[in-house]
Simulated assay, not measured.
Amino acid sequence: MTPAFTHCALHVRDLDASIEFYRRYCSLDIVKEHGEGKGRTVWLANPGAERTFVLVLLGGGPARTQGKDDMTHYGFGVPAREDIDRIAERARAEGCLHWEPRNYAPPTGYLCAVRDPTGYVIEFSHGQPLGPHGDSA
């Protein structure tokens, strides 16, 4: 038996703000939705990956805080190094940049991190050997 990693579920403070954030920063779309009010839940995925991996957002969660030295995060790969700089610039202007862009030795690559509306930290990276934009070197 080999279990498959299919989803990550997060309780979020403001579901609609979180949906908008993940659309704008991560290009995720709603693929399933059920419930109402605090029980409302959405599944988000990259186009074409709806049956592979989803981010599940559950409404009604508490705000979160995380220190700059706490490396707890989840990550998204991007196709170009310049994408990291664009994401960081937007996040800086919107007051949600968590880690400035920085370069790390392989396999980590070039990255920055952004806080979502609940306070979860999302890393954006280029040069990691993961996902469709992975560096095969």
Rank of each mutant, 00 (worst) to 15 (best):
113 A>Y: 01
51 R>C: 11
68 K>S: 10
49 A>E: 12
9 A>M: 14
79 P>D: 10
10 L>A: 12
68 K>E: 11
31 V>P: 05
79 P>A: 06
29 D>H: 08
134 G>W: 01
119 G>Q: 06
28 L>V: 01
28 L>E: 00
103 N>S: 08
110 Y>Q: 04
94 E>P: 00
98 H>A: 08
79 P>R: 05
136 S>G: 09
22 Y>S: 00
6 T>M: 10
75 G>N: 04
18 S>L: 11
127 G>H: 01
14 D>S: 13
107 P>F: 01
108 T>D: 07
100 E>L: 06
35 G>S: 07
97 L>G: 01
46 N>W: 09
14 D>C: 05
56 V>T: 13
3 P>E: 09
67 G>M: 15
64 R>C: 03
34 H>E: 13
107 P>Q: 01
76 F>D: 03
71 M>F: 08
20 E>R: 15
14 D>N: 12
60 G>T: 01
48 G>Y: 08
77 G>K: 01
86 R>Y: 06
47 P>I: 07
52 T>K: 09
98 H>L: 05
1 M>D: 15
122 I>W: 04
43 W>A: 09
116 D>W: 11
135 D>L: 03
45 A>H: 03
35 G>R: 04
18 S>P: 01
6 T>I: 15
58 L>H: 14
14 D>G: 00
2 T>M: 15
122 I>V: 14
63 A>W: 08
65 T>D: 11
66 Q>V: 10
46 N>E: 14
111 L>R: 02
10 L>Q: 10
28 L>Y: 04
127 G>L: 01
4 A>D: 14
117 P>F: 13
27 S>Y: 11
46 N>S: 14
123 E>H: 06
128 Q>P: 15
1 M>F: 13
59 G>I: 01
32 K>F: 08
128 Q>K: 11
85 D>N: 12
124 F>P: 02
75 G>A: 14
128 Q>D: 15
78 V>Q: 02
59 G>W: 04
52 T>M: 08
81 R>M: 07
49 A>T: 11
101 P>Y: 05
7 H>W: 07
95 G>W: 07
102 R>E: 13
69 D>S: 12
71 M>W: 05
111 L>P: 05
84 I>C: 03
57 L>S: 02
87 I>L: 14
30 I>C: 03
56 V>Q: 10
31 V>G: 05
70 D>K: 09
98 H>R: 08
7 H>Y: 07
76 F>H: 03
93 A>K: 12
65 T>H: 09
72 T>Q: 10
41 T>Q: 14
6 T>S: 13
14 D>Q: 13
16 D>P: 02
74 Y>L: 12
119 G>E: 04
106 P>F: 01
37 G>Y: 04
53 F>I: 15
7 H>C: 10
4 A>P: 07
88 A>S: 06
39 G>Q: 09
98 H>K: 10
68 K>H: 08
95 G>A: 08
54 V>T: 14
8 C>R: 13
95 G>M: 09
89 E>V: 14
39 G>E: 11
27 S>E: 10
15 L>D: 04
41 T>H: 04
21 F>I: 04
101 P>S: 07
117 P>M: 14
